[in-house]
Design a protein around this nucleic acid. Structure first.
Lengths: 144, 144
DNA sequence: AACATGGTGTTGTAGAATACAACCATATCA
DNA sequence: TGATATGGTTGTATTCTACAACACCATGTT
């Protein structure tokens, strides 16, 4: 196996192992917010509001799945729906105050956890790792 | 936010987004083998056999979940159980011929997919990325 | 204006994944 | 031997998810 193939193999294996653990990790760090719920809230915060369809496309979920997640998050008071005046089919989703609060708490626990885990990384390594991940996800989105 | 915090934030966000997509990606790349099933088979291949308890610990799954997954994979002819002669409570799991075959097919599709996605990465970047991922997972395992 | 077509979201339904608790069998240790 | 711990299975309930059918709105064509 060439050096390149070996690296690809490692990337694939390590990312898969990480993904396999992510759900349980989320459940332990913030039991009140599942991995899906967390990612949706974080996405809404980052994007300053978006449509359910965008969420489905971004996270490779069926629109019905997103619809139920959104309904649940709304019932919990974490998000609000605002009908788009320009297109009445569209609901623009926004964080509600309760969602801002619970997202902040969950994110804080995640950040603290990752801060501890990566405490002894050099700043340059950390910064490069972050850039690689961004690039990888961008590449993944570009090659569906 | 400091540069370090910013990098940590990016790492956290990108890894989460990746994890959120992993299940659907696996389902599309190899519908006959779910993400869990794939990781279990790959683990068995890598470890040359292991116990169900080890799988549960490694992937943060309940032992009942692993038990059912293992039972299903055995029914499909993908793995074999061999009772440990030194400890009759233990079943050592091994890949069966059918498992070797289907794992190879799934892995080939995964590898091809990632090969295309990362086609224009420099070898050094790829190698560094792989090392960072290994290190990250090791750190995560060390800080449970 | 009327109609076809497509995009956005919801609901019905079914299956898979998962956790927790209770349990059985085996092993280890006092 | 009896108490305790470990590995695994099964009962049960919940959650996540996809697919299909549907309703509603928008846009373009005739």
């Amino acid at each position: 196996m060439s050096a390149r193939e070996s690296s690809l193999d490692t990337v694939q294996r390590e990312l898969t192992a990480f993904a396999r653990r992510a759900r349980a990790t989320a459940a332990r760090m913030h039991p009140e917010l599942s991995l899906v719920a967390y990612t949706i809230l974080a996405h809404l915060e980052e994007q300053q509001g978006c449509r359910a369809t965008d969420l489905a496309a971004h996270y490779l979920l069926d629109k019905s799945t997103v619809s139920r997640q959104v309904a649940s998050l709304e019932r919990l008071g974490f998000i609000e729906r605002r009908v788009d005046e320009a297109d009445h089919r569209v609901q623009v989703l926004h964080l509600a105050p309760g969602g801002v609060e619970i997202l902040a708490a969950a994110r804080a626990r995640r950040q603290e956890s990752i801060r501890v885990r990566l405490a002894d990384w050099d700043p340059e390594d950390l910064e490069r790792f972050a850039r690689y991940l961004v690039r990888y996800n961008a590449d993944a989105a570009a090659h569906p």
